[in-house]
Design a binder for these strands. Structure first.
Lengths: 214, 214, 214, 214
DNA sequence: TATGAATGAGTTTTCATTCAT
DNA sequence: AATGAATGAAAACTCATTCAT
């Protein structure tokens, strides 16, 4: 085979991108290292030159995804103009999208196969994003925008609940019912945070800000 | 090897019990059929005499678990005396316990490995238990006990969110903080359902009604 | 299960009949002892009470089939009225039918799967039927009906060749071409045996004298 | 274990050669992939790196064998000098040898086990070689060398019959009787094709042109 | 005679990982 | 940096046969 040398960073990225797509399509266990390298057109050994193991590759992919989300959330977090409610909504949106954007992959995605990955991604996200959301909630409480004495717990419950909820419905449901679901999500958030009726809308959620993700 | 014959019912139960423990300890993928039969002391073939596949075994275990929960939930469901709030709380408790009781296994449980199983169990439960909870919510709404226009959505979100929340905290947390978490859960439920302050308590949640479960 | 006791002969026959059908449908290797007993509705152990092994069962089935053919061939053999040519034709017919009558099974038969069985049956048949055919050939030669100096060899070659030929064509071919094939077979036999043009016809070959056979 | 790397072509050939010998000795079903790799001294995985399955390996071996025969038959087929009778005899020889050369393996060969393989090989051969033989027969007929109105049928019957005949006798028979058998085969062919007495001889047939084959 | 649960050796196949080049 | 042949330890599953009842 022709031997194409790339700089490590580039090769690593190529492998991660390819693997991410395959993991999303077929699931992690069901994707073999051979699948990944075959699709790229490099040798099996090349993979192990760049990554310690398939497991570590997954971790890096997951972290990269979380970082991407974090980046956007930090922007929101640091925005001085936004109300707490605005921020919360923005963060939630980012969080959902992180776990639910399959973009053009949508059709192949095997719900079953991906539950585990979705789960892992959510867990990782929670650890890093959760605290930021909690901070906003606290901020909102102190500003009188929100009203809750369980900011951490509430954040976590809603983050999980909503994320799962969306994960389960976003592709199955006919579009007409999606609106109602999103309104329900808003309603839940408002009530749980003790916010006034929001003017901000979660809609539309269809945009894909991450490219093909898990 | 000495050949010990049991009636199928008994042997199947033995295999299911043993497997359930192993799945909880090491995870499903990580437990081989060989592990299961070795622990029982029967031949590999015995397993396949009683179960079609490892996958089917898992399904049966999961169904058994769900059935166990269903049974208790039906009791609540059919109770004429309880208020909607009482019923909801009772159902939630059962639902949590279903997914979170590891009893004496608690210490070995490999959180990571079990996420997938927990997930599957929750999904199965939702399908069967969810509709009952929704009915109660609707009943509560019509009685004026609750106030929500999204009974289905709210039920699902909270069921997932709370279940995950508990799954993640019940063993890690020091006991002193558990109380606060449960209160938070109650608070979330009240608000989301639009209920008045409940007098019913979720506490205590520690009891194990199912034996060693996933 | 209800325990139905039959006299051994009857039970053996039942097992052989059932197995014969299954072997014809799915092939020998592909039919498990479990398949056989399931179809009859007896226990696994019952099989081994009556037969030493699956292999031995096959042998008995094959022998039974050959015996059936032998019986008919002996009639021909001992017929004082028939010419050698008549006898040969009659014997060939019996031999073909032995290996090629699947009767109503025709449609399921997996050519591939059954080659091995057909082969074995032919071999067994040759050993027992071959010598009788050879005798007739010799008789024909001495009577001046036939003309060959290789009666044994010729018998064997033609028996094999024709049997295979028919095995390969009898179900695939459209009926219109079968006539030509049979005429070709006759032609081959006449020439090889050095017979005059026969007045006897192999046609029709479709009759099934054995029931469902291999 | 010491790791010896070979180029795929070489390794594949090594595996095919080894498997061919084992299949011939013990039969296909009775030879496990483990047997093959053990004999070569490579890992189980090496086998599956080079072949998709044991079944596919057999196919490749069979095809290789047929190709070998085809190659020689094409030479004959395209020879402008030879008479039709010469060609037929040459082709038959090749065809026999293809199916019957076990070379030095002769002694181990388990007749029983190999019937199925021989069968498969013959079938494959017939499909590819048969048509060439038929063409020659037709050519012979139009040249007035042969005389038959069933060129296809006759070819097939004789090809099968003779091949089986030889398969069954070549190793069992004492050499002294082989000559007679071959003369019988010639006689059958002459008669069936309606040829004049041939001057060409099938003898000698003992030469092994293929090495150890099935 | 019959039952049917149990046996256990054996099979093919997969795949993450290694390593000589 | 890259190659790709080789590794080898699993794994799930099959099935003819056995045997206590």
């Amino acid at each position: 085979m022709v031997r194409i040398t790339k700089n490590p960073e580039e090769r690593r990225t190529e492998i991660m991108d390819t693997a991410q797509v395959l993991f999303a399509q077929k699931g992690f266990e069901e994707t073999s290292v051979a699948d990944i390298v075959r699709k790229i057109g490099v040798a099996q050994g090349t993979f192990y030159y760049h990554f310690e193991s398939k497991e570590q590759l997954l971790n890096e992919i997951l972290n990269r995804l979380v970082d991407l989300g974090i980046y956007r959330i930090e922007e929101i977090f640091n925005d001085q103009q936004m109300s707490a409610a605005d921020k919360i909504v923005g963060m939630f949106r980012t969080f959902f999208e992180l776990g639910n954007n399959h973009g053009s992959l949508g059709e192949y995605v095997h719900q079953e196969k991906n539950n585990a990955l979705h789960q892992r991604l959510m867990d990782k996200s929670l650890v890093r994003i959760g605290p930021m959301v909690v901070k906003i909630v606290r901020e909102g409480v102190s500003r009188g925008e929100f009203n809750t004495i369980y900011p951490e717990e509430v954040t976590e419950i809603v983050l999980y609940g909503v994320s799962q909820f969306i994960h389960h419905h976003i592709y199955i449901e006919d579009k007409s019912r999606i609106k109602q679901k999103i309104q329900a999500v808003e309603d839940v958030m408002e009530r749980v945070l003790g916010a006034r009726k929001w003017s901000i809308r979660l809609l539309p959620l269809e945009g894909n800000h991450y490219g093909e993700t898990i």
